[in-house]
């Protein structure tokens, strides 16, 4: 027994070490954002809000933040809708060329972003759709729909096989069954899918840089600063976005948990 305790101790230590590895860059990014040095080095300079003041006073950053919110909101709704439809089709039906159908949906994430970006730019400008906010939205929805599909498909797997047919036997139409049985059942998966696709879209810079034209999103601004003259504004933007999105996610999580608890108590 003591041997197992010893082993557990090692494993937990290892786990903590892994978390340290994952969170080190995030922590340092936060530290550098409050550091007065133009080029962060060790030892640190003084505490400073300079970089926050800079980004706060830059209307370009605000515009980018608004663009990012629009893009990720529309993308997550579109991608989740597409993902749900596909997952349901896969779950419910057998049809010809189903393999091809699924490949069509699942392939985009296997293409490196930089290639997808290049192809998207060439294609969208060919059909006269480049340089707009919705160019980014179209591209991002293609990229994230497979994630939505995967999450929702997993949930559909857990559904009681007889549930849907039972609803039909009780006289519900297919549409009503969808509305009152399937959708409520998938609700948690749909919410997770909305969050995940929004997060992926919110941090994507390669495609956005290529197709956005003058409509920058936050990651595009970060990329421009990193390529141009790297300064801690990127840390300030990163930290600000991080805490904002974390607040939203945690709020949503807590809201979701209490809502679930209430449901159980009924």
């Amino acid at each position: 027994m003591t041997k197992e305790k010893y082993l557990n101790f090692i494993l937990i230590t290892y786990l903590i070490f892994i978390f340290v590895f994952i969170f080190t860059p995030i922590a340092f990014s936060v530290i550098f954002s409050f550091n007065s040095q133009r080029f962060p080095t060790i030892p640190l300079g003084n505490f400073s809000l300079e970089w926050y003041i800079k980004i706060f006073n830059d209307p370009g950053v605000w515009q980018a933040a608004i663009n990012s919110v629009i893009v990720s909101l529309v993308t997550c709704i579109l991608a989740t809708f597409l993902g749900f439809c596909t997952a349901y089709s896969d779950y419910r039906y057998r049809f010809k060329f189903k393999g091809l159908y699924l490949a069509l949906v699942l392939l985009p994430p296997t293409i490196p972003l930089i290639i997808l970006a290049l192809a998207m730019l060439a294609w969208l400008s060919k059909i006269g759709m480049s340089g707009q906010l919705w160019s980014i939205i179209c591209a991002h929805s293609v990229l994230t729909a497979p994630f939505a599909m995967a999450i929702i498909r997993l949930r559909l797997n857990q559904i009681d096989p007889d549930l849907e047919s039972a609803a039909w036997n009780l006289g519900g139409s297919e549409w009503a069954t969808m509305r009152y049985v399937i959708l409520p059942y998938c609700k948690p998966a749909i919410i997770s899918s909305l969050c995940l696709t929004a997060a992926v879209s919110f941090d994507e810079f390669a495609i956005s840089w290529f197709v956005s034209g003058l409509n920058k999103t936050v990651p595009v601004i970060i990329l421009e600063i990193v390529q141009g003259n790297i300064d801690p504004q990127v840390n300030a933007i990163g930290t600000f976005v991080f805490f904002t999105s974390m607040t939203l996610v945690i709020t949503a999580q807590i809201f979701f948990l209490t809502w679930q608890m209430k449901g159980k108590n009924k």
Binding site: F19, I22, F23, T24, P25, I26, F28, S29, F32, P40, T41, I42, L196, A199, V200, F202, D203, F205, V218, P219, I222, L223, V226, I230, V234, N235, I237, G238, V241, F242, S245, M246, V249, Q253
Partner: peptide, 22 residues
């Protein structure tokens, strides 16, 4: 798992820039 999702909400570019200094 929730903690592991957190990194997805921070910019990959910014994290890379931090590694640079580390």
């Amino acid at each position: 798992i929730f903690m592991l999702i957190i990194p997805f909400f921070t910019s990959y570019l910014v994290r890379t820039f931090s590694w640079y200094v580390i």
